[in-house]
Design a protein around this nucleic acid. Structure first.
Length: 283
DNA sequence: ACCCAGGCGGGCG
DNA sequence: CGCCCGCATGGG
């Protein structure tokens, strides 16, 4: 049993971050049930009304002794949400986003899983990304008790590029193949945990198919580096509108602005801007 | 039919 | 640097 306060399950899951939570969210307000798959197994959660407790069950290669810590980490439940949000609440716009979405947390996913999902995300939409990821799970995931786990980089590295494309990846097929090969051999992705944000980002961007925005997503959702501020079409438009009277700004200028305004927790600021803008169709 | 989607790489000035 | 272009695919 996991205890969770200042937590909104639906906002967290629906805000486009842990894309492999492809499956079943049965929402009811801030509560609901959720099941997701990783490369290690399957997890089911029930966040119960009134008790603010999360019931869980799991199958796969998880250890009973550490599964609660893994779920807490994945859902961002150990973050000091109150403290972070009060630190980034610098203006009326952010204040309304925070009031609207209070309890939304930044999840911590596996680096490889995050990388695959966000390489897939370029020039794409969230609904279709989820479908393609599901296809890749079905096509390349190891079988466990009749179900498919999240595919390993090895499975995709040795796959035929035409079979990758059959999952619906489109032109991203060669990026996916390349990144999987690098994760299998040559790219020491665990080292990025020890590296500073700037260095880690530079290293990620050496890979074909990973640019400024995708690198920031990987660092934010896959490595827990909250200095990352992914700038997609939504965030760019919303920031221009809310903070620059609608004037066009370059990605570089928005990076500098976010750094000055929100500092070390600007990744959280980004997530509230993104989801608030998307839900209210601002931009 | 037309437009867009959590962008990126490459080529140009 | 900044700007512009093509890129697969499916849903509104």
């Amino acid at each position: 049993m996991i205890y969770a306060t200042d937590f909104h399950l639906r906002y967290t899951i629906e805000s486009g971050q842990p894309l492999t939570f492809y499956s079943i969210l049965k929402p009811s307000g801030r509560y609901g049930s959720l099941s997701y798959v990783t490369s290690d197994g399957f997890v089911q959660l029930r966040y119960k009304r009134n008790s603010e407790k999360i019931d869980y069950s799991f199958e796969g290669r998880y250890k009973k002794s550490s599964i609660e810590d893994e779920i807490r980490a994945r859902l961002g439940l150990d973050h000091d949400l109150k403290g972070i949000l009060s630190a980034i609440n610098t203006d009326p716009f952010m204040d309304s986003a925070i009031k609207d979405l209070y309890g939304m947390r930044i999840t911590k996913n596996e680096p490889w899983e995050t990388t695959l999902c966000f390489v897939m995300s370029q020039f794409n939409n969230i609904k279709r990304i989820r479908g393609i990821i599901q296809n890749m799970i079905n096509a390349f995931g190891d079988e466990f008790d009749g179900r498919r786990l999240f595919p390993t980089p090895e499975a995709i590295a040795r796959a035929d590029i035409a079979d990758i494309r059959k999952c619906g990846t489109g032109f991203r097929d060669r990026y996916i193949k390349h990144v999987a090969e690098q994760f299998t051999c040559g790219f020491e992705y665990d080292r990025l945990y020890q590296m500073g944000y700037e260095d880690a980002k530079e290293r990620l961007m050496e890979l074909d198919g990973i640019g400024d925005k995708v690198a920031d997503c990987i660092l934010l959702f896959g490595y827990g580096k909250y200095e990352a501020f992914p700038i997609d079409t939504w965030v760019k438009r919303v920031v221009e509108r809310a903070y620059f009277k609608g004037r066009k700004k370059s990605v570089r200028q928005i990076h500098e602005f976010s750094m000055e305004r929100w500092g070390a927790n600007r990744g959280y600021a980004q997530q509230y801007i993104f989801e608030f803008g998307r839900r209210n169709k601002i931009g």
